[in-house]
Simulated assay, not measured.
Amino acid sequence: MSWKPLRVLTPRSILPALAVLLVLVAGAAAHANKPVPFGDRVAGPGGAEASPVNAQSVSAADLELKVGPGLEAYDRVTGEHTWSYRREGATALYLSMAGESAVVVWDDGLVTSARPGDKEVRWHRAVPGLADWLRGEGEPGADKRTEEQRRQLATERAAAALHTVQQSSPWVAVVTPNLTMGFRDADGDLRYNSKPAGNCVYDPIRTVGTDYAVLVPRSCTNSSGQPVSGGISGYRLDSTGWQLNAGPAVALKPLDGRRVLISDGPIVGPKVFDTKAAAPESACGSAAEPFAAVRPQGSCAAPEAAGDQQ
Rank of each mutant, 00 (worst) to 15 (best):
S169L: 13
E148P: 01
L110M: 14
G285Y: 07
G231H: 07
S263P: 00
G27E: 04
N178H: 12
H163F: 01
T91W: 08
V228D: 02
F38D: 03
N199V: 08
A131I: 02
G47N: 09
H81C: 05
H163P: 00
S282H: 05
P303F: 07
V105P: 01
G68C: 10
R259K: 07
P5H: 09
T10K: 00
G117Q: 06
E137Q: 07
A98C: 14
R135W: 10
K271H: 08
P196Q: 10
L22D: 02
A293M: 09
V214M: 02
D187M: 07
Y85D: 02
A60F: 15
M97P: 03
E289P: 02
K144C: 04
G99K: 11
P116H: 06
S233C: 10
V260C: 02
L153I: 14
V127R: 01
N54R: 14
V294E: 12
T155F: 08
E281Y: 03
T221P: 02
Q149H: 07
L252K: 02
A98K: 02
L134N: 00
A251F: 06
N199K: 14
A29H: 09
L255H: 07
P69G: 11
Q226R: 14
E100Q: 13
S299V: 15
R115F: 08
G209Q: 01
N199D: 09
L22T: 05
D107N: 13
D62G: 03
T78A: 13
A278I: 13
L95R: 05
G99Q: 13
R236A: 08
M1T: 11
R86I: 01
V25E: 05
D274M: 03
S223N: 08
A292M: 12
S233T: 13
A186N: 04
